[in-house]
């Protein structure tokens, strides 16, 4: 079983549209929406949820007011400015609370409860293109990396149970906690970028990240014809770093139209950008299926 992670560095480059089309094209796959912070894949795949679970991403403290004598020890010790006082009444700001437990442990009156916080939900679903693991992080909650790891592990489990050969992961933008959680140990990372100065800058950061974690990476340039010179520059950068550019997708309004219709681009049409997408998938399927070319990618790094 292989894991393909699609990430983007810069947000809004078309990562989820690429994943949705891959889902439609791949013969035997499990999907994992690891962009738990702002998940969108479900809008296209319309999952039918068969398992709904609570997620506890850490602990949280709560002051029991009847025992509190207002000594202020907790406020003095909390490094996250999470203890609020209003007219002598102490309370914990759940959004600021980091879940370290210091206030509870050192409260002289032992009147601060400390226990698991429920801060999200995760789901297992059926979709028209295969089973899917996804999640919703509670509003203003931390630990998205933790939830990403969980979704990824659940997708892997689904693939093992049902004998699917591939897990396609929709990663999140950036290079931080959730991205690291979605790419470490994966077989292949596809970075979707766009030909702009920002796209180029952020792709460099993602390239460094994949190198740092030793995950083989390939690149595709979405809306490549918006700025052809920049596309060539990005391709040059990638070549110099030994990161293969495996596809270009043209700018096409059909991408947005497909999204409005709740379809993957390759379901909506077969011309234009959909054609590019199909070609891109064939290249990647070849890489994933052929262990030799995947090994070549490793040695190129």
């Amino acid at each position: 079983m292989k894991e393909l992670v699609v990430i983007s560095g810069k947000g809004g480059t078309g990562k989820t549209s690429v994943v949705a089309s891959f889902a439609a094209l791949a013969p035997s796959t499990v999907l994992a929406d690891c962009d738990v912070d702002a998940a969108d894949l479900h809008l296209i795949l319309k999952p039918d949820i068969f398992s709904r679970n609570e997620f506890s991403g850490g602990s949280m403290a709560q002051i029991l007011p009847e025992g509190c004598n207002g000594c202020g020890t907790c406020r003095k010790l909390c490094r996250f400015d999470a203890i609020k006082v209003n007219k002598g009444a102490y309370r914990i700001d759940p959004i600021a609370c980091e879940g370290c437990g210091v206030c509870s442990h050192f409260c002289p009156e032992k009147t601060i409860e400390f226990g698991p916080a429920i801060n999200g939900q995760w789901f297992l679903s059926e979709t028209r293109h295969g089973p899917m693991a996804h999640a919703k992080l509670g509003i203003a909650q931390e630990n998205s990396g933790k939830l990403v790891t969980l979704v990824r592990a659940q997708a892997k489990k689904l693939a093992q149970e049902r004998g699917h050969e591939l897990v396609i992961i929709d990663g999140s933008p950036g290079i931080g906690c959730p991205v690291i959680a979605s790419l470490t140990g994966a077989d292949l990372v596809l970075a979707v970028t766009e030909p702009s100065m920002s796209g180029r800058h952020d792709l460099q950061r993602v390239t460094d990240l994949a190198k740092h974690f030793g995950t083989p990476m390939i690149v595709c340039i979405n809306k490549w014809d918006i700025n052809e010179d920049m596309t060539r520059l990005i391709e040059q950068d990638a070549n110099q770093q030994g990161v293969p550019v495996v596809g270009r997708i043209r700018y096409d309004r059909a991408v947005t139209e497909a999204q409005i219709c709740g379809q993957a681009l390759v379901e909506y049409t077969s011309s234009g950008a959909a054609k590019d997408m199909r070609l891109l998938w064939e290249t990647i399927a070849g890489l994933l299926g052929d262990s030799k070319s995947a090994a070549d990618l490793h040695t190129n790094r």
């Binding site: 912070d37 702002a38 992080l137 203003a140 931390e142 998205s144 999140s172 959730p178």
Partner: peptide
């Protein structure tokens, strides 16, 4: 601000 809805945004 960064995109998303979690800790860095807040």
């Amino acid at each position: 601000a960064p995109p998303g809805t979690s800790c860095p945004v807040i």
